[in-house]
Design a protein around this nucleic acid. Structure first.
Lengths: 133, 133
DNA sequence: CCGAATCCCACTGGATACTG
DNA sequence: CAGTATCCAGTGGGATTCGG
């Protein structure tokens, strides 16, 4: 996905009729909030370096999917993978500096959750309209 | 999803080995960053009240999916739906106060994007490992 | 122990057409 | 205009097996 928005980015509302650039933060959202990526980054941030099986158990995800996500995160520079040529083999995953720079985003999210998640649940409980799906 | 922590966990001194609570912000992530929800909220925040077709065109999503997401957002109290009994019919969507309280989250995301998205793309370009999928 | 490879299903979401 | 209905392809992800 080419991000057409270059240097002159102001995060203020600006008329934009092109669906591709209608939501300028979409690239980051895809990057950080793809399925399982948030739990992975969170656990690595909270508990430090983890082995494969530790992540698997903590997060509750199958090895196949975990591998997919870890590769993606490694490719994007958010996670560092380290292999130790031992017997039995050992592979450790650590969050990178780039990855931990997301803490501000996660913090904002956590604060919003503390402040407003109850409102959402109240709204859900009070909602009577048609539920599609 | 189906996490089998059956309430009677009783005597398990495990700190937070429970996958369900491993990432406390997961509920909010599901809420705000489900597919299409971010573009919808962004457009409503940036351009104000919008009609159905305006959203459809600006975001580039099919009416079926748009309806699903809008209902969900309405149920969660992030979007307000207003129907005008006119001919032709008119329905307008507006972000609620609760919805716009997410601006801090979006702002944090935008700032991170400005500061670090280039690093991610550089890492992607430099990555030589195996690409699953 | 750390994955890769395969099979397979459920669900999401896209395209299209139709209604009030 | 504002959706709904239907069909369908793509994919995420679970289960299982195998290899290094």
């Amino acid at each position: 996905m080419p991000n057409a928005r270059t240097a002159t980015s102001t995060w203020s509302p600006q008329p934009d009729d092109d669906p591709a650039t209608a939501c300028p933060i979409s690239p980051v959202v895809d990057l950080v909030f793809s399925r399982w990526t948030t739990p992975i980054l969170w656990v690595l941030q909270a508990h430090g370096t983890q082995r494969f099986v530790e992540l698997e158990r903590r997060i509750g995800v199958t090895p196949k999917v975990l591998t997919q996500r870890l590769r993606q995160l490694e490719r994007d520079g958010l996670v560092q993978r380290r292999i130790y040529a031992e017997v039995p083999p050992r592979v450790e995953y650590e969050i990178t500096e780039l990855g931990s720079s997301l803490h501000s985003v996660f913090a904002a999210l956590g604060e919003w959750s503390d402040a407003h998640l109850a409102d959402v649940e109240a709204s859900r409980a009070a909602y009577t309209g048609p539920l599609p799906r």
